[in-house]
Simulated scan of single mutants.
Amino acid sequence: MMVMPRRRRRPVAEINVVPYIDVMLVLLIIFMVTAPLITQGVKVDLPKATAEPLAKDSKPPLVASVNAEGQYFLNLGDSKDTPMSAQEVATLVAAHLQVEPETPVMVNGDGTVSYNQVVQLMVLLQKAGVPSVGLMTDGAEE
């Protein structure tokens, strides 16, 4: 009887990734379910805080304002106290930024204005080409 020499098997040096894929899919499902629950807002009273003013050597800012009645204003030209339409504000801001692109843009909102109106003004400025917007505040009461 002839005995065949047994061959030794080489160890497999591959990682079995199937269990890791299963774990990742479970985690993906968990995050997809919990993400909408996390994004809901909570009503809070924001603290008053002091903010640093603009540097004295910077260009004077372009201030877009919305008053309690929802009217828009822009501190540009002779009509600083004249209400404007949203399209007029966007056109004037875009034209001013083409001439002086480094001008800072600030948003000033009345304290009684709804948050939605301030956000709408910020969206309007974004569509006019404003790269970033600062929010104006009153000093904190001490």
Rank of each mutant, 00 (worst) to 15 (best):
A128Y: 04
T103N: 06
D45I: 12
V99L: 13
V133N: 04
A13N: 09
P61D: 00
V23A: 14
E102P: 02
L76R: 10
Y72S: 07
P60V: 04
V119N: 04
V33R: 14
E142A: 13
R9P: 08
V89F: 00
S85M: 04
K43Q: 10
L28R: 05
S114I: 07
P61R: 11
A49H: 09
L92V: 11
R9H: 07
P104A: 08
L124M: 09
P61Y: 00
V118H: 03
G41M: 06
D138H: 14
I21Y: 11
V18I: 08
M136A: 11
N16A: 09
M84G: 01
P53Q: 12
A86T: 15
K59P: 05
L54A: 12
V3K: 12
F31D: 01
V63G: 07
V89P: 05
G109K: 08
E100P: 03
V123D: 13
N116F: 06
T82H: 14
S132A: 13
A35V: 07
M1K: 11
V93N: 02
D78W: 10
V44P: 04
V66D: 09
P11W: 15
R10V: 08
V42N: 09
G77N: 06
D57P: 08
P5K: 13
R7Y: 00
K56H: 10
A55M: 13
L62T: 07
L124N: 05
S114G: 15
M4E: 09
Q126L: 03
E102N: 10
D22K: 13
A95W: 06
G77C: 07
A94K: 03
V93P: 00
Q120S: 11
V63W: 05
D78A: 09
Q98A: 14
V130P: 02
E69D: 14
P104G: 02
T82Y: 10
L76M: 07
I30A: 14
S132V: 01
R6P: 08
L125C: 06
V44E: 03
L92K: 09
V44D: 03
L25V: 06
L28E: 01
L97V: 02
N116C: 02
M4P: 09
T82A: 14
L37C: 10
G134I: 11
V33F: 15
T112M: 01
L125I: 07
L74T: 10
P53M: 12
Q126Y: 04
L135S: 01
V105F: 04
E100N: 13
Q40S: 04
P36T: 15
I38E: 08
V23G: 10
T34M: 15
N75T: 02
P47L: 04
V23P: 04
Q98E: 15
V118S: 06
Y20V: 03
E52V: 15
A86H: 01
E52F: 10
V119K: 02
S114F: 10
E69S: 00
A86R: 03
P83K: 03
Y20T: 00
A35D: 08
D22P: 02
F73L: 11
R9A: 12
M24P: 03
T50N: 05
V12H: 00
I29P: 05
Q40T: 01
L28P: 00
L25K: 14
Q87E: 15
V33D: 14
A49D: 03
V105A: 02
M24K: 12
G129S: 06
T137W: 08
